[in-house]
Amino acid sequence: MENILEVNNLTKEYDRFSLKNVSFNLPKGMIMGFIGENGAGKTTTIKAILDIIQNYRGEIKIFGLNSHEDSAMIKEDIGVVLDDMFFPEILTPNDINFAMKNIYKNWDSSLFQHYLELFSLEPKKIIKNFSKGMRKKLEIATALSHHPKLLILDEPTSGLDPVVRAEVMDIFQEFIQNEECSILLSSHITTDLEHIADYITFINDGEIILSTTSDELFNQYGIVKCGKEAFQKLDTSDYVKYKKNKYEYDVLVRDKKAFQRKYHMNVIDKITLDDLMVLMIKGEK
């Protein structure tokens, strides 16, 4: 399977925070959910991919090309939604259309109009007067209207109510009906990702601690709930992290079937992304 995006050993140092050897691959035709706490490095990683920050070590390849050197060509085929970075709010959707016609070679005015209608966005209203949710919808419409091949979306569903979120998720799934197209999507609303993401990449404190197919994650990982006595019998190599609660232990295991064969424990829960995040970050080893 060919990769549309490859991030290799991305390292970037700041005074109080750094990205350490961030690596992951996004194959064509797939949706990757990018999760992590606020401040874990999601936005910094996305900014490096988009060349917004440049002085980093490591290599980023998009469509097989170097993301920095072939930037102009690559960007014709990327659509982005960034957290709080967009056209100045004095402009209207019509103004955006007016300018974008000469910015992207493939800008499709009628597609943009279609999204404006779909999202009930008034074309002559200035962005300032849109609600937060409306702004997000406008950003999504703008990101989609030049027929991009790769969508890079930083928190695209924040501020949207559940109905619109479902609508937007449908649009994203429609987008990858074309097998050449992929999406990198960061979100803290993990239920969105549990449904549609094909891959989950989890970043914590500037490091990737997990990048795998969601199928593997949900079918193989599990949470074992057990008492103190049972917990003390476990081999440390058989679990990833554990958390001690008042009445029981929550233990994150990588292969719940193998675990069951070895220990014959019955209370193994299905994992959710929220559980995973909490146990990975707060759990002990």
Binding site: K47, L50, D51, I52, S71, A72, M73, K75, E76, I78, V80, L82, D84, M85, F86, F87, P88, E89, I90, I103, Y104, K105, I127
Partner: peptide, 19 residues
């Protein structure tokens, strides 16, 4: 125009557009 650009962090967005 510079002030409006700055207020909505247009420059970061502009970098994601071709050239």
């Amino acid at each position: 125009t510079f002030s409006y650009d700055d207020f909505n962090k247009w420059d970061a967005y502009a970098v994601t557009l071709p050239n």
